[in-house]
């Protein structure tokens, strides 16, 4: 009984490898509860969700595509992929970060309020970022911007001192380059 230094029933956590960010696309049957299954899997097993988007992609076949950006060690990422594949309504899981050459885009709506010089500056920056004005009043604009997440981050950050009011973002959607299907 001289060997009872720890005070838990369980083995200590092992030291982790470096966490990396991965983008997964998950093709699922569009049935009730499928998103809850995916989210429940992440929360129940303690995985991270950095971004999640979901929408029906093929109405006739009742298929939806979920795009998830997550962070974890390579072992955890592999686990996430296998755990997702294990869900009954999941057709296929593709790790776009591993397959490489994927395109990632996000759309954001950005509301900015201001007068005078601020309005001019906002429009000038919007032009530089290829953001479109989709609503305007005498004291506000709503911009629509698409691009990689870091581009949107940057745009939002620049709008902050000018008079940022609200931001609404879709989260990341992604697709592989080239002729191949997922």
């Amino acid at each position: 009984m001289n060997t009872t230094a720890t005070t838990t029933h369980y083995p200590a956590a092992t030291t982790h490898e470096r966490a990396e960010s991965h983008t997964l696309t998950v093709l699922v049957d569009n049935e009730p509860g499928v998103l809850a299954r995916v989210i429940g899997l992440f929360s129940g097993r303690g995985y991270n969700i950095d971004s999640l988007t979901v929408s029906e992609t093929e109405h006739q076949k009742h298929l939806s595509l979920i795009t998830i950006v997550t962070t974890g060690t390579p072992m955890v990422i592999e686990q996430i992929k296998h755990q997702l594949e294990r869900l009954v309504p999941v057709h296929r899981v593709v790790d776009l970060t591993v397959t490489g050459k994927a395109i990632e885009r996000e759309l954001a709506l950005v509301k900015v309020r201001g007068k005078g010089e601020h309005r001019v500056e906002a429009l000038r920056l919007a032009d530089a970022f290829r953001a479109r004005v989709i609503d305007a009043t005498t004291e506000s604009f709503v911009f629509e911007i698409t691009g990689k997440s870091d581009k949107i981050d940057q745009f939002v950050e620049l709008m902050l001192p000018i008079g940022l009011v609200d931001v609404s973002r879709t989260g990341v959607v992604a697709i592989g380059r080239g002729a191949e299907a997922m």
């Binding site: 083995p11 200590a12 092992t14 592999e78 686990q79 296998h82 755990q83 594949e85 294990r86």
Partner: peptide, 24 residues
């Protein structure tokens, strides 16, 4: 396994399982 980092340190391991998520 007990303590994971001291689990069978010198072995090559083969794992047969019907559930891919059990492996690794």
């Amino acid at each position: 396994t007990g303590r994971l980092d001291a689990f069978s340190p010198g072995s090559r391991k083969i794992h047969i399982d019907i559930d891919p998520s059990s492996i690794n």
